Computed example of a mutant assay.
Amino acid sequence: MGIYLSAPKTEKVSEDGENDRLRYGLSSMQGWRATMEDAHAAYPDLDRSTSFFGVYDGHGGKVVAKFCAKYLHQQVLKHEAYLAGDLGTSVQNSFLRMDEMMRGQRGWRELAILGDKMDKFSGMIEGLIWSPKCSEVNDHIDDWPSEEAYNLSEDHKPDLELEKERILKAGGFVQFGRVNGSLNLARAIGDVEFKQNRSLPADRQIVTANPDIKTVELCDDDEFLVLACDGIWDCMTSQQLVDYVREQLKTESKLSAVCERVFDRCLAPSAGGEGCDNMTMILVQFKKPVDLDASVGEKIQKEQPLSSDLRSETETDRSSVETESK
């Protein structure tokens, strides 16, 4: 059946975890595809103030997805811009550095460690979030209803005006919504055959690994974040997925189980078309902040003994009640 199996592999690899700011659950499933090309990373405590989550969707091979899952967060963490509190710059440079490593001698050595065939290198980053540390606020969502989906990213499709302009200037073309008639996305780590113009910097190649950076300030009404590959987004809109997750959370507290139910809902009954891709999803649920002053005050009030004056008044009131009852 070519790229598809005769029956889907529905075994799921799942994980749950938490820290004092958030809970997360994740799961992945091969599905109808002949190979599993997705990878993921989940580090709720990348350091003392930062959490890192990523879903990596390989295409034409799994090498780049695995490579990013293993090394991208390490690049971010050690970058000098990150150490200075500039998340945006550290992320951008880390993406470009990973792409450079795909072509450099060091990159080849590290790819060999993964033990994969290295005939094709391609991969797409589906989502990243840092919490709660932010470098700058570009968008504020205090006024959004908590039940409404809010898209944190936009698919980098080749026929988008900004992407198409870069592709054409770099000497490429867009045909049938695909780069040079073959690749249906305009930004990726890897895909080195679309990055051969030596007169252009990395962010102006036909296909670029240069990411869009968007920082959002969380508010108390924000409930959860979903990161997923297109095996999910091809089957459900953002709003449909948010509505489904909220409904599941009414009866299911294990976040990875919610991800697994999403897969079962999306899985196609037969091979071909939507619902047949690899599926990976991370669900991050934000914990509500605790008012420490209020909770401490309430505890003191419960535990503090009555003052002598208040005790006397209470005893007098009790005596009056007993006299009246007689």
Rank of each mutant, 00 (worst) to 15 (best):
Y4A: 03
L5A: 00
Y24I: 06
S28D: 12
T35N: 15
T35P: 06
P44T: 08
L46W: 08
T50E: 02
Y56D: 14
G60T: 05
V64A: 03
Q75L: 15
L77N: 07
D86N: 14
D86R: 09
S94A: 15
S94C: 13
D99K: 09
D99C: 10
E100I: 06
M101C: 11
M102E: 09
G107F: 02
G107A: 07
M124C: 14
W130R: 03
K133N: 10
H140I: 14
I141C: 01
D142M: 13
P145D: 10
P145N: 07
S146Y: 11
E148Y: 13
H156F: 04
G181T: 08
S182L: 11
N184A: 10
G190K: 06
F194C: 02
Q196G: 01
L200D: 05
L200M: 11
Q205R: 04
P211A: 08
D220R: 05
D220C: 01
F224T: 03
T237W: 09
Y244W: 05
V245T: 05
R246F: 01
Q248K: 11
T251A: 03
T251N: 05
S270D: 12
G273P: 03
D277I: 07
T280H: 10
M281H: 03
I282M: 03
Q285T: 02
V290I: 12
D293Q: 14
Q304A: 07
L306T: 10
T323C: 11
